[in-house]
Design a protein around this nucleic acid. Structure first.
Length: 376
RNA sequence: GGGGAGAUAGCCAAGUGGCCAACGGCAACAGACUGUAAAUCUGUCCUCUUACGAGUUCGAAGGUUCGAAUCCUUCUCUCCCCA
């Protein structure tokens, strides 16, 4: 993997760059659609490429390990071949499931015991096994196994957790470096900064993570319920410490406004389930704010979905029709809304990139934040 | 013509003397969702009120009772079976 920055913004910490992987180039800042189970829910790969213009998507170690299982993925020749996505892929490590499935897992220094949410079977994840699993899944970028702490989180717990995540990271790096690429392209490992909302812990973690000298770095444990100001504050602190010449990935973020504010702080990569999950629930993101397409006021509104939209669905379908589809729980509703939201997210980061390059990012960002901060 | 069953809020449906403004489901209306256990979850849902609370309901009318959706009488309507 190679990363290069072509432009930096004078009025903020925003940068425009390129990540080069064996599966292609990623222009940053970038948003990565979440494809947990090897699919971005309700969206076809062809639509991801041609209409949404996704450059990289996610998969999830925990979910893919449970189903279909490693044997299937290995036989397929890796996740790219299995799901037909021949562009860059990133897998999350299961660290988020340590948080989201906290009721069915037990953490120890050695690793995490999970009770499968699918069939109740018992499984054990260690930093080493998670590296092996991600080697087999074969994403271009793989993530360290960490503990994503909840919010709120006591300082003492956050500190102990952080220390363990750091020890886990050493084990992840060791195992990763001892093992080889399983397929005919290279993989890279990103470590993850933790530390909850404590500035001191975040600084300490960022320094530790930077010292591992990997090809890119991630910030985790945010957007788990803390106020947005805390999230920005932590992001800002960490970004000043993480090396500027490597991509910074803010995990699990966020709303369109979160993206723009974080880009201004020096973030290059994002992923989030909001555009896809909320699409399925009828929420559409636009340049002028959020639309709840299920609301009665759209019942007889036959205007096109989004006059500023870049996706074909934006011009093809009316608000009234999408309202009908979502109301009726028709699959096409989820599909249209997901395509719209993802296309919007990709447009947003692409436009941010253009503005950084043209030197007008800050003003544009402020205007967009103001504009998007309402409900339609 | 004879026999039987039934009418409960937008729909389905429980309730068969007080704990009933009336279980539950659906629909409707609104909200939540941030490295996806999510096509999920939450709230509202007779009228007025932000709420407290007040008012009017269980086919219609009348009656019994301290008290009725629940008991009695008459009426209206619906469904089923037999001729």
């Amino acid at each position: 993997m190679k990363f290069s920055i072509s432009h930096t913004d004078k009025n903020s910490k925003a940068r425009a760059g390129e990540i080069i992987t064996d599966h292609g180039v990623i222009q940053t800042p970038i948003f990565m659609p979440v494809g947990t189970a090897g699919t971005v829910k309700a969206v076809h790969q062809r639509e991801l490429k041609e209409d949404i213009k996704a450059q990289i998507i996610l998969g999830n170690t925990y979910h893919l390990y449970l189903r279909p299982g490693l044997e299937v993925i290995e036989q397929a020749g890796g996740l790219h071949k299995f799901n037909g996505w021949n562009k860059p892929l990133l897998t999350d490590s299961g660290g988020y499931q340590v948080y989201s499935l906290s009721t069915q897992r037990k953490l120890t220094e050695e690793g995490a015991k999970f009770t499968s949410h699918i069939d109740g079977s018992k499984h054990f994840f260690s930093p080493e096994s998670v590296m092996d699993i991600q080697r087999t899944i074969g994403a271009d970028i793989i993530m360290a196994f960490d503990e994503c702490t909840p919010y709120p989180c006591e300082y003492d717990y956050a500190k102990r957790s952080l220390d363990m995540t750091h020890r886990w990271l050493k084990r992840c790096c060791k195992r990763f470096d001892e093992t080889e690429d399983k397929y005919d392209y290279s993989q890279t490992l990103f470590p993850i900064v933790q530390g909850s909302v404590y500035k001191g812990l975040r600084e300490k973690s960022a320094e530790f993570i930077a010292a591992q000298n990997r090809e890119g770095n991630a910030i985790g444990g945010l957007s788990v319920g803390e106020p947005a100001e805390d999230m920005y504050a932590m992001t800002e602190v960490v970004c000043t410490i993480l090396p500027a010449d490597k991509p910074r990935y803010l995990m699990g973020v966020g709303t369109p406004i979160n993206l723009l504010e974080s880009i201004a702080l020096g973030i290059d990569m994002f992923d989030c389930v909001l555009p896809t999950r909320n699409a399925r629930h009828g929420l559409l993101y636009t340049q002028n704010g959020v639309i709840n397409i299920k609301n009665e006021k759209w019942k007889n509104d036959f205007s096109i979905l989004d006059e500023n939209g870049t996706a074909y669905v934006d011009k093809e379908y009316s608000k009234a029709y999408l309202r009908h589809l979502v109301h009726s729980q028709e699959l096409l509703g989820a599909q249209i809304a997901s395509i719209h939201n993802l296309a919007f997210y990709l447009w947003l980061v692409g436009e941010a990139r253009n503005k950084i390059i043209s030197g007008t990012f800050k003003e544009w960002k402020n205007k967009m934040v103001k504009q998007m901060n309402c409900r339609l």
